[in-house]
């Protein structure tokens, strides 16, 4: 077996890369949430001065990347690769932002799991000796996601209790083989799982089996138990998916306790009218890079497991009656 592999699905990085800088920017709804102070920039509007929501999302990603580079004290040409992804068709937000930055670019699509996918891949590239520094960027935007997956923005429609609310914003991490602080130590890549959930307004339930599967294999591969982590996070299962995850894991003999939370539930308060909670690529990215990393730097947390979850549907697939496949990738952050 390859030297850095552990068990069936997990990779233990030999020289775990450092997260040397982060950039997080969010929109107005996230600015009203309990984590607002942890983000670098809270935009009071959805547009950032752009004409269309799609251009705005690209700007969100570009701004977050600039903030992260500035904090790292790096120019774009000093970064070897940019790994980025978002939810829009042909991942235009990422590619168009990459057009401005001029860093060698690899586009990713893992729906809302793209954050962990990017950090995992970036860490492997660095640990493999193919790069010194990698920039990982993801974005999502409430209005662009509504337009692509659901309905026109101003349409009168009642949000289902199971439906999530796409986080507006972007999270960027600069990974490096040198530095100090938080490191990425383990990566567990998930399989696509589909248990036949067809409701596009209930992506939490569609993704929960994949999240449970990835967490199960992570614990089994590494010989760890949930209590070995200061915190275990899922990306955007929301209120409904969270319940399903706990049920499915219980069937597999794993009980998640108080150290488990979901980024989609942390980013908004109960008073905000956001259905089942936050979702989108930016959800797990800004919560992890803004909130969790700050708490790790403070010394409150030292070992955190983040499993970003993605629903791999398209508007076409659900209109054709297909079910919603889910995926989850897990990364472990340690300091």
């Amino acid at each position: 077996m390859a030297a850095k592999r552990v068990g069936k699905r997990t990779i233990r990085l030999q020289n775990p890369p450092f997260i040397i800088a982060t950039g997080t920017i969010v929109g107005p709804q996230e600015g009203k949430g309990p984590l607002a102070d942890d983000f670098d920039v809270v935009s009071p509007n959805y547009t950032l001065g752009q004409k269309t929501p799609e251009q705005a999302e690209m700007r969100f990603l570009e701004e977050a990347a600039k903030i992260a580079l500035e904090k790292a004290g790096l120019q774009p040409h000093q970064v070897d690769y940019m790994l980025a992804g978002d939810l829009l068709n042909q991942i235009i937000s990422s590619s168009f932002a990459a057009r401005q930055l001029g860093i060698p670019y690899l586009g990713l699509y893992g729906a809302c799991s793209t954050f962990a996918e990017g950090v995992g891949l970036g860490s492997m590239i660095i640990d493999g000796g193919f790069a010194d520094r990698v920039l990982v960027a993801v974005s999502s935007h409430y209005q662009t996601a509504e337009r692509q997956y659901r309905y026109p923005i101003e349409l009168n429609i009642q949000r289902k209790l199971t439906a999530s609310y796409t986080v507006t914003g972007s999270g960027v991490a600069v990974l490096s083989n040198q530095g100090q602080g938080t490191r990425v130590t383990l990566v567990t890549v998930g399989v696509v799982l589909d248990l036949g959930i067809k409701d596009p307004n209930d992506m939490g339930s569609a993704m929960a089996p994949a999240a449970a599967d990835t967490l199960f294999w992570h614990f089994s591969d590494t010989g760890t138990r949930p209590e070995d982590y200061d915190m275990i996070l899922t990306g955007d299962l929301g209120r409904v998916g969270r319940v399903m995850l706990l049920e499915v894991l219980k069937d597999k003999g794993i009980i998640l306790e108080d150290n488990y939370n979901d980024c989609g539930l942390m980013i908004y308060s109960d008073k905000q009218k956001v259905g089942a909670g936050g979702s989108g690529c930016a959800c797990s990215a800004v919560v992890t890079l803004g909130h969790i990393l700050r708490r790790m730097q403070n010394g409150e947390l030292s070992k955190v497991l983040v499993a970003s979850t993605g629903a791999l549907l398209s508007p076409l697939s659900y209109q054709q009656g297909e079910s919603v496949p889910g995926i989850a990738h897990a990364i472990v952050l340690e300091r």
């Binding site: 309905y151 101003e154 009168n156 949000r159």
Partner: peptide, 28 residues
């Protein structure tokens, strides 16, 4: 759209709701 979120079919069924579907799509 806020009225729709609050009132559901109460906002969708009257002709004002029909007007909303066309204007919302046109704006988008």
């Amino acid at each position: 759209d806020y009225l729709g979120e609050f009132a559901g079919a109460g906002a969708a069924v009257p002709i004002t709701g029909f007007s909303n579907t066309i204007v919302a799509a046109a704006m988008d």
